[in-house]
Design a protein around this nucleic acid. Sequence first.
RNA 1: GCUGGAGUCGUCUAGUGGCUAUGACAGCAGACUGUAAAUCUGCCGGAUUAAGUUCCAUCGUUGGUUCGAGUCCAACCUCCAGCACCA
Length: 417
Amino acid sequence: MNQVQSSFHTSLSEELKWRGFFAENTITDPRSLDSRPHKNFYWGTDPSADSLHVGHLAALMMCACFVRHGYTPFYLVGGATGQIGDPKETAERDLKSLDEIAKNKAALAAQIVHVTHSPKDTKILDNLDWFKDIKFLPFLREIGKAFSMTQLLDRQFVQHRIGKDGSGISYAEFSYTLIQGYDFLHLFRTHQIDLQLCGADQYGNCTSGMHLIRRLENARADVYSCPLILDQSGKKLSKSEGNAVWLDPTKTNVFDFYQYWLNQPDAVLESYLKQFTLISPTELDDLLTKHTKDPSKRLAQRYLAYAVTEFVHSQPDADLARKLTSLLFESTDLANDLTSLTDAELDAMTATLPSTPAKTTLIDALLSTQLATSKNDAKKLIAAGAISINGTKATTDQAIDTLSLLKKGKNKFAIVR
RNA sequence: GCUGGAGUCGUCUAGUGGCUAUGACAGCAGACUGUAAAUCUGCCGGAUUAAGUUCCAUCGUUGGUUCGAGUCCAACCUCCAGCACCA
């Protein structure tokens, strides 16, 4: 699978529709996207963590879709907006230190470049570059004047935060949308960017920029959002929900990343394949037909896991994850298979899975590979029958002196070597 | 500034001065499965022990009253509401 084969759609609007990349937007006729005078857009995120997660991935895949159809992307990492924090429904955010923001910013920028697969062309912007020189009074006179307090107060999260049962909101967070709105205006003025892409949760913030452009530049700009991807329990996939799967392999290793996709239920396969891979309609039909014949073979999950891992990480990484999966789940004599691996293969495995040196005990190994969070936790897991060594259930703590494979639950592994 | 209300686990939430701080969701694990979903069961602060053995921590913070405090008192921090000030 590559990008050439995947541009089967005659137009951007058709592909967006087929992939399900449409939610609230200001475009009245989707086909106008195929022939905009300026084929520029920007998409932004705040450096509130040191890695993107799969929640961002859907938006990036949508961006990639625009790029395949001739758009020039601008990615913004919010060094300014990140200093304030996008208000949540529930409560005020803790301020991040400037050091942390700077560190996160660098990490996200590198990741965006990596995931978009075009190191030379990818333009990363930082709104701190234009905000650091902004003066408060001119900002209020120009931007503040353009916002109606009534509309600002009407926003749903504001209503949640103030009032009898609210948790309150600071002036800083309240003003967040002005900062983000100004970004759009600034980019319109300096780069002729008149389209902003975002996840549906950001739609409100994005439209405030659009209003600014209309008001101050007397020009039209648009916002196009993609639906938020929800997990099984209907929660948004993002780190604030505590179920994040990170794109950074040091935070979510490649094997776990692959496993995450491999474990998706049948119900989400079609939409995930459309949004997270570059599969074509005919390939998809074919795949789903085969999958439905014998769902237990998990053909569609395997395809999804391989394709997304390849896209986000690399082909060798995806190959390795697939190979590890077949070794770890399909081997009938794990201890034997393990010893027959070459050193190079073992090295790759050790680099991917959590590992710890031999001459240790089971509990210490579980702890140092983070399969368990504490000694108590490790003991509880052993007692519950959740831990196995080389495929044999461990019922007590024991010394581990040789190459071994630890398994926690169904799909968490670590190597003792 | 004054008055009243509130702050409990990742989230929401119960909690008449009494020993062991509810319940739900999320999370983890077991059974059944297809490494799925649904369902059932257990766990869900840390350390220690052969052991569910023992120890420590914990209801915004710091003090106090009490044999005993999440609960009562005081001060402080944060939030909400009303009033006042300002306009």
